[in-house]
Amino acid sequence: MNLTRPAPSRTAIFGLALTLSILTACDSTSSPSNSSTNRSPSAFSSTVAKSDVGNAHPSGILYLRTEQGDSASRPSTTLRALDPATGSTAVVREFVHPTNVAPSIDTNKAIRARNGFSPDLQRMAATKTVGSDNHVGWIDAANTFIDISAHNASTNSFANKPQDTSPTFDATGAFYYLDLVAKAVMRVPAGAKNAELVRTETFTPTGILRDNPKLYVSPTGTASVARSGGQHLYAELDTIGSGGELVDDWLSSDTFISQKAENPRGNPIYRCTTTPPQRAHMLDCADTPLTPRASDQDISTPVASPDKSRIAFSARRDGTTKVYVIPATGGSPIEIERFLVTSDSVTLIQWLP
């Protein structure tokens, strides 16, 4: 019996080579040597691709910039992460404002600014003017305005039209707002659109005695309503007081950092231990300045590091904003190198792990 195999034809050899070439190309495509999935969060640069925006896991100091845009673009609000070790930044999320929609972000205090965003940073609280009506909702990751006021409005033609304000999120992702017609605090659970009543209020919504109320929800989930005029300030630990200044960030369960309200320009950052801890504003404690006074700079939005050993804050001078870091016990500010903003507004929100 002849067991000798016939030699493969030239056609078979060409087919085998072609198959191996295709398999090799597929393997190199599916396993790139520089895959973005292997990128360390601390290695983000300021040239993050648009496809990466919102997909990154931010690390460092989270801050936002409100940019006016130009005639060819719509205004936007951009969240970025600043690496305190290198000064490099990365875009975490960009929200482009739909027509007639404006963000509802309190940039005076870091801890309040956080509440303008859902915890996953996928939504930003916003308002919309519809004729003479005020609507609230959020801009989602697709830059679409989700109109919560319209969703919950009465279909009765004789019913009052929405006059809603002060939209905000809590630590669970629930959405809150003030209904000025019903004088009520309303809540929308995370993942839902139907609003539920939290409680009614006593503020004056219109007229010469208008209170201009603002809503704040603490990390414990308690909603507080602030009135204008300095008579009914809301506090981080849910107790209403008068005068003084409120929390920017916490160093411990009873010690916070803040600035005084009278004149924030150049004023030092203070550390304050509350007595008792449920009253959290500057009149209720012996404050200790952590930074020197600098009358030619606007110091704002201090945030504590995850281990509470350091504090970062922004300082604006002659149209330029820089970020500095000090020990939580106070000391000489150290500038974060390479971070420099010469236009738009900058608000530090949180120092992430």
Rank of each mutant, 00 (worst) to 15 (best):
E94V: 06
I139F: 02
E196Q: 15
R93G: 00
G131W: 03
L197P: 03
N152E: 10
R65H: 00
A184W: 03
T144C: 10
S309L: 07
W250D: 10
F95H: 01
A72I: 04
S40R: 13
L209N: 15
P6L: 14
R271W: 04
P32K: 05
S305M: 10
L121M: 10
Q278W: 12
A17D: 06
T202E: 09
V225A: 06
A171Y: 09
P277E: 12
P119G: 02
T172W: 05
R265D: 14
L290P: 07
T144M: 15
I326G: 00
V303K: 06
I311Q: 08
D106C: 02
I326R: 01
A195T: 05
L233R: 08
S132A: 13
P189I: 08
I111Y: 05
A261H: 10
T200D: 06
T24K: 07
A81S: 09
G330A: 09
I111P: 04
E262R: 09
V303G: 02
G241E: 14
D307N: 14
G230V: 06
D254M: 06
I336S: 08
A113M: 07
R293C: 00
P333Q: 06
P84Q: 00
A56R: 11
T37M: 13
T165C: 07
G266S: 05
M1T: 14
V188C: 05
A294S: 11
A192R: 13
T86S: 08
A85W: 00
A110T: 07
N263R: 12
V325S: 01
L251M: 06
A294T: 14
S343V: 03
D120Q: 11
G131L: 08
S71R: 07
A110L: 06
R279F: 13
V247N: 09
V323Q: 01
P41W: 02
N152H: 10
V181M: 07
G244P: 06
K161I: 08
T239F: 12
P264F: 00
S51I: 10
T288P: 03
S42K: 11
R227T: 09
P205K: 04
F145I: 04
R112P: 01
T320S: 13
G243W: 01
N55M: 10
T89F: 03
L290V: 05
N2E: 14
L64H: 00
T165K: 02
S300V: 02
G116T: 06
Q122E: 12
V92G: 01
T204G: 01
A43N: 11
A286Y: 00
A72D: 04
D254N: 14
G319E: 03
G54C: 07
P119E: 04
V325N: 02
R316M: 08
I61K: 01
G15L: 15
A184S: 07
